[in-house]
Design a protein around this nucleic acid. Structure first.
Lengths: 194, 194
DNA sequence: TATCATTTGGAATAATCGTTCCAAAGTTAC
DNA sequence: GTAACTTTGGAACGATTATTCCAAATGATA
């Protein structure tokens, strides 16, 4: 009977995610990954195939984690407006508590690799479309319930909200200041009111 | 009397900018730069010091170009609201006409290198603050002239506008569709109206 | 304990990397 | 044409890179 793996794959992905996020894909060497994960090269290659395979797995893992966290928060309320607000609150908190200022792995990967890595480009597009779709659903509910303005079509407003979320990822990288990000978001969310 | 340089530095910076923008800093090799610029290694090192020096110079050159283009457009009108609109129009047009989908070099560099390159982080922060300051000035003018709503403090609204511009840089990377970006911007600019 | 089949550790490999090196080439002045 | 001084071309260099390789180690089972 063969030896079984002695490491926790989820833990390894988390460690890889952190170093990839900090140094970028091309700026992260296999040595960096060996050190960060505590695994030998053989273990990394046997489990993930190659550097790129590990990267994609870590990126998917990262986004799943983000999605789950946001899902948990928005489920605490039935109000569409509050669901949307909870997403922005989550995002601001994520930015402000990111001590190493690593930013969002999906945005980083997309900005670094969109031209040269189709897998990453596709993941980023899918993530965007899913989030926009979720916002659209909530906005439609909110508009039907009368708590969100009908001034703009739901899809358009949803896209603007997502745009603002991504903007936070960029500007928050430069200046992860809670009050500033809160103020920016207040203005954004005022769009739901008119 | 010594031989004079046989290349146009501005042209070289432009070429370097393009390849850096497409492949990222760490994904671009000196071979790539030699090929893209048509220069020998000696010429590159003699003129720019090293890869990093060339990168920073190209990045500064890129941002100067962006600033000049936006400056030219906004100068065509006295209306603060129209100045702001012209910046968004410029940005959308820049995104949509970017055939290779390289994106914004400053955003790309910042997302790739913010944690590991203080020069880049500083340049990105400076660029952001300058743009926000410019928006603040225009918004104040517009509020004084009665063409822009006084609902939000000028600085806060300026930051939200900049946030939206950066959002366009990210979302436009995934989906450089003119109509979509226009719609997103319409919602954003409605903030100036109330 | 023995067996089995995988995991592990880490050296080896070929290629690539950023930078240095230096002779040849080129421009200008005399 | 010669002298002076920089630019240019591209090979050389030491370090780093992602991946392969393979023997030792090890966990699971009988």
């Amino acid at each position: 009977m063969p030896k079984t793996k002695q490491f926790d794959e989820a833990e390894v992905l988390k460690k890889a995610e952190e170093v990839f996020n900090e140094k970028g894909y091309n700026g992260t060497s296999m040595d960096d990954l060996v050190r960060a994960t505590g695994l030998s090269r053989s273990s990394i290659y046997d489990t993930f195939g190659d550097k790129h395979g590990l990267f994609l797995k870590a990126l998917g893992n990262y986004q799943d984690g983000q999605n789950r966290a946001m899902q948990t928060l928005q489920a605490k309320t039935d109000s569409a407006k509050k669901k949307i607000r909870s997403i922005f609150d989550y995002m601001i908190n994520d930015i402000v508590t990111d001590k190493a200022r690593k930013g969002c792995m999906m945005v980083n990967a997309n900005m670094e690799l969109n031209c040269v890595d189709k897998d990453v480009a596709q993941m980023a597009l899918t993530t965007m479309e899913e989030m926009e779709q979720q916002f659209t659903i909530w906005i439609k509910e909110g508009q039907a319930a009368g708590e969100i303005s009908k001034k703009f079509p739901a899809k358009t407003l949803a896209r603007n909200l997502y745009n603002n979320l991504m903007g936070l990822r960029v500007t928050g990288r430069n200046r992860p200041d809670y009050d500033t990000l809160r103020d920016i978001t207040k203005v954004t969310l005022s769009l739901l009111d008119q």
